[in-house]
């Protein structure tokens, strides 16, 4: 391809189209928004309007009280991520969007599991919890509540292991994420 700034012509055949492509992997978007009423509705509404499907969503304050962080995950196999981020950027209350690189990102989720655990099962559940560094935060006669944090993979692995004991219910926060190193997310 001809160098910009020279008189070399470029051949049209050499031009590659950019964008509109599916990446095929999970994406974590970290979105800084103004902390104003209705902003979450605008973000969620945009996803509905454009037929984008949110996998998980977590909202919380940041170090700056005027700014909130929305962390959402979505599937790059079914969504053109650059189109999602460009549409999000058009929202006036959206300040910054980062499509976090998996290798440079720490992502964590908190989950609470209510398990039926009586008799021998209880010991086994406790053992699994120990391996996963999960905490038992409530004990009743025939059940326990377990708190666990980690990546989505870890939580799903934990779920697979404890489900046979009798999973009564489960609550998960959805992932939050922050970039590694000194630079801001």
């Amino acid at each position: 391809m001809g160098e910009p700034g020279t008189k070399d012509m470029i051949s049209l055949d050499e031009l590659e189209a950019a964008g509109g492509l599916m990446t095929g992997r999970k994406h974590i978007l970290s979105i800084l928004v103004e902390n104003k009423p209705g902003v979450l509705t605008r973000v969620a509404g945009l996803f509905a309007r454009r037929a984008f499907n949110i996998d998980t969503l977590a909202v919380g304050p940041t170090d700056d009280p005027t700014v909130s962080r929305i962390t959402l995950t979505l599937d790059g196999a079914v969504h053109p991520i650059d189109q999602v981020t460009k549409q999000l950027h058009k929202l006036v209350n959206v300040l910054k969007i980062r499509d976090l690189e998996p290798e440079e990102t720490l992502a964590r989720e908190l989950a609470l599991f209510k398990l039926s655990a009586d008799g021998a099962a209880r010991a086994e559940v406790m053992q699994i919890c120990e391996i996963f560094r999960a905490k038992i935060v409530d004990v009743a006669k025939r059940s326990v509540v377990v708190e666990i944090t980690g990546t989505t993979d870890k939580i799903e692995a934990f779920e697979r292991l404890v489900r046979p004991f009798g999973l009564i219910e489960m609550a998960r926060t959805g992932e939050i994420a922050i970039s590694r190193g000194r630079n801001e997310t």
Binding site: A17, A18, G19, G20, L21, P80, D82, Q83, H89
Partner: peptide
């Protein structure tokens, strides 16, 4: 920018 490559990828 959201119009670019929305329906037809731009070179």
């Amino acid at each position: 920018p959201a119009e670019i490559s929305k329906n037809v990828p731009a070179h």
